[in-house]
Amino acid sequence: MNASLPYLIYALFAVGGAGIYLALPRSGRSTAVPGSILGLAAVGMFVAVVAKYALPSEGAGFSYLFSAMALIGAGRVVTHPKAVYCVLYFVLVIISVSMLLVLQGAEFLAIALIVVYAGAILVTYAFVLMLSQQSASVPGDVRSREPFLAVLAGFFTMACIAGQVGDLPLAAAPSSEQVIRLAQHGEADQAVMPEMMVDGNTAAMGAALMTKYVVTLETTGVLLLVALVGAMAVAKKRVPIEESPDPEKPLGQVGREAAPF
């Protein structure tokens, strides 16, 4: 692998970051057009670099398509001035990523992503955001807050993660192939894996979750339960029951009682 390749990739991250920074909604003169061009150029070059160095594989075209959809969708999530469109682009990102997971043979994760994120969490977002104004006239919608710091933090984190997964110099992690091999042929899973792998990996995944990772899973569950209880405790407003001034005329009974039918 070319030694300068990692730095090229970091440079592309920087270009993409600059594009996002320019495309973020702001007051004053909009720089969305040059920002979008810069961002698209970064995505295009990234695809070109990946296409040059990646090994040929089945379904690579779909992989590029969904990756590009996910990247552009993610860019629109942060740059679109209308909140409801942001949620929709987020849904697009989720669906694209789940398609990528399908291409990787992880159907269960793909569907779990759709059910949990697109089906539940983002519906809740949409639920709240529908109450926002349709024409984006509120300053909070039009202007993004701390765009430079946000872009810097975001792309630095992304560079670090990219370094973890691939052979980039920011981290000395096992290569992705090794990771996959370890996951597929880990010792703990070997008892349940081989025959089930033939039929797909959902059963193997379930078995792994319920044997090797059962403590993690249950801890996560308890954590969510605690969060749920805490949220209810915070949200529950105690309203004192008002005393009716007239005992003959109890509360809520001031006028004529309207019979429901």
Binding site: K249, Q253, G255, R256, E257, A259, P260
Partner: peptide
């Protein structure tokens, strides 16, 4: 509407 006009039908 006076007080006497208020009728609450018990069935409800």
């Amino acid at each position: 509407i006076t007080e006497d006009d208020i009728i609450i039908v018990d069935d409800m």
